[in-house]
Simulated assay, not measured.
Amino acid sequence: MGDDSLSMATSREDRVRQSIAEYIDRRLEWYSQCSYRQLLGKDFAIFAARGVTTAEEYVVEAFHALESSSEETMIGSMWQKVIAAISADTIDSGDLTTVRDGAVYVCELKAQVNTTNSSSFPQELRGLRQRMSEIAGRRRASAQPVKAALCITRDWKSVDEVRTFTASDVVRENRDLDGFEYRYLSGAAMWRWLCGVDSQYGLLQPLSALETETVKIARERTIIRLQTELLHALRERDLGTGIDDVVTLSERLNEERNRKYRQRRKR
Rank of each mutant, 00 (worst) to 15 (best):
S5M: 13
A9F: 08
R12S: 05
R12T: 00
E13A: 14
E13F: 08
D14T: 12
R15P: 03
V16T: 05
V16A: 06
R17S: 11
S19G: 15
E22N: 14
E22I: 08
E22F: 10
I24V: 11
D25E: 14
E29V: 11
W30E: 08
Q33P: 00
C34H: 06
R37E: 10
Q38W: 02
A45L: 04
A45K: 05
A45F: 02
A48L: 01
A49P: 00
G51P: 01
T53H: 02
E56S: 09
E57M: 00
E57C: 01
Y58D: 01
A62R: 03
H64V: 04
A65S: 13
L66S: 13
E67V: 00
E67C: 01
S68V: 03
S70F: 07
S70G: 14
E72S: 14
T73Q: 15
G76D: 11
G76H: 13
S77M: 14
M78C: 13
W79G: 08
W79P: 04
Q80D: 12
K81R: 15
I83T: 09
A85V: 01
A85R: 02
I86A: 03
S87F: 00
D89W: 02
I91A: 06
G94V: 04
L96I: 10
L96K: 05
T97W: 06
T98G: 05
G102H: 03
V106Q: 03
V106P: 03
A111I: 10
N114A: 13
T115I: 14
S118L: 14
S119H: 15
F121R: 07
F121H: 13
F121V: 09
P122I: 11
G127P: 04
L128G: 06
R131M: 07
S133I: 00
E134R: 11
A136Y: 06
G137H: 03
R138D: 05
R140K: 07
R140D: 01
K147Q: 14
A149Y: 01
T153G: 07
T153L: 15
S158N: 06
V159R: 09
D160P: 03
V162D: 13
R163C: 05
T164H: 08
T164K: 11
A167V: 07
S168N: 10
S168I: 04
D169C: 12
V170S: 15
E173M: 14
N174V: 09
R175P: 04
L177K: 03
G179Y: 03
E181G: 01
Y182S: 03
R183Y: 02
A188K: 11
W193D: 11
C195S: 12
V197A: 08
V197T: 09
Y201G: 12
G202F: 13
G202E: 15
Q205S: 15
P206E: 08
E211K: 15
E211F: 07
E211W: 07
A218D: 05
T222R: 11
I223H: 04
R225M: 08
R225D: 10
R225N: 06
L226W: 08
L226E: 10
E229W: 09
L230H: 11
L231D: 09
R237K: 13
R237L: 07
D238P: 00
G240K: 05
G242M: 04
I243P: 03
V246Q: 02
V246C: 02
T248V: 09
L249C: 05
E251T: 10
L253M: 10
E255F: 10
R257Q: 12
K260C: 07
Y261G: 12
Q263G: 14
Q263R: 13
R265F: 09
K266C: 08
K266Q: 15
R267A: 14
